[in-house]
Design a protein around this nucleic acid. Structure first.
Lengths: 220, 220
DNA sequence: GCGTAAGCGGATGCGAGGCATCCGCTTATT
DNA sequence: AATAAGCGGATGCCTCGCATCCGCTTACGC
């Protein structure tokens, strides 16, 4: 099999040499792995070392960390999209929402860099993709609300924040109790159900436009 | 008014000179403030600068950051104790739990260093104090459960984790929406109520003994 | 007042850690 | 075989936090 001629993401000038292209993919794979374990705090040197190749090789292919992260954006994002599509196929809106929140939380618990990566790269295209995902979630939420299965005062923009909350538990309990986050995800999901005993949420949710800047902040 | 003769926390050798003692208190005040804003990431140099005194002065009084943090432990802890006492006086167990969780979350939202400071200093005395607080919370939880007002599968050890979750939102939305954490605190509290629609929590909570190490981990 | 010990300030040195380059060697490609 | 492309990783630069050190100031006891 011959190289596809697709060196970089677009069909740019000259194709990479075979070994270079192989390395490029390898770097992406390893970077995804390293960022999953340690978040974006990991350095390109870490990635290179783990990949068993020289730092120079990494820096030649990706001028800096941002470039690498951007290249990673797509593959991290499709995970969520697929999760959303799977969830949207649920029989009820409530199931859809539950399924999505739970799967997104799980993805984030497993991948410490997920939110960080996705919140970066504010290009037009990524913005459009994010909007698309947001719309899907919104649809699930609205559907569930029409069924009366989740409280009327929550909103699609709440979902990422739920994930942030779960992520906090996942990160700090990772070593001691790797599955602890599930417990609190369930608690949160139960907080979404409507009915007697709920107190109207006191403040407004985040505007979708504010989400980006909020999610970028490292929770330190 | 003359110095009390209490130079350090215990009645050790010679009392500090008046200006030194004044500075010592000032350092503690300022440190509390700085850590509240920026967490334990703030440096002693930051503290000194903010206090308008030299770095040397800080380091003479507190050999390193740990010493300063330990000196701060008490005053941070009593805040929580008082909150707990106030909450415990609530008419119902449910109110007590709600009141405590909410007040603790608020304290943490306002004080970014709160959990970090409290989770440090693992001396006998602090351990005893923590145990005391834990017992109070436990009592509230049990009381609320006997009333049937909160679900039977939560436990006192869950409460700190709830605070951690809220803290994550508070920290990353701090600039954009300083009160956003309330929204999610309310959601969590609603997740605590019992009744139809709750799904039994799937995993065990943290053992109280594990809490310490989990809470120490910086959520990065 | 005055002598002196205690305190003060902050420039400074040290070390850690991340980022990115550079250049002599290797290898794919034609 | 010639050559351009790629490779490796030691290396230098820089930022940042921690803590010390020493010449000057100040409170305090007599």
């Amino acid at each position: 099999m011959v190289a596809t001629g697709e060196a970089t993401d677009d069909g740019s000038a000259r194709p990479l040499r075979a070994d270079a292209e192989r390395n490029r993919r390898h770097i992406l794979d390893v970077a995804a792995e390293v960022f999953a374990e340690r978040g974006l705090a990991a350095t390109l040197n870490d990635v290179a070392h783990r990949a068993g190749i020289g730092v120079g090789t990494v820096y030649r292919r990706f001028p800096d960390k941002d470039a690498l992260v951007e290249a990673l954006w797509e593959r991290k994002f499709v995970v969520l999209l697929e999760v959303a599509e799977h969830a949207a196929a649920s029989p009820t809106g409530a199931d859809a929402v539950r399924s999505f929140v739970c799967a997104a939380a799980e993805a984030r618990a497993r991948d410490r860099g997920l939110v960080e990566v996705l919140a970066r790269a504010p290009s037009d295209r990524t913005a459009r993709q994010r909007a698309r995902l947001h719309a899907m979630v919104d649809e699930m939420v609205v559907r569930a609300q029409r069924e009366g299965a989740i409280r009327p005062d929550v909103v699609a923009a709440d979902v990422p924040l739920l994930v942030v909350m779960v992520a906090a538990v996942a990160d700090c309990a990772r070593d001691v109790a790797p599955d602890l986050w599930r417990r609190y995800t369930e608690l949160l999901l139960d907080g979404l159900r409507p009915g007697p005993g709920t107190t109207e949420l006191s403040g407004p949710p985040l505007e979708p436009g504010e989400l980006g800047s909020v999610l970028q902040r490292r929770p330190a």
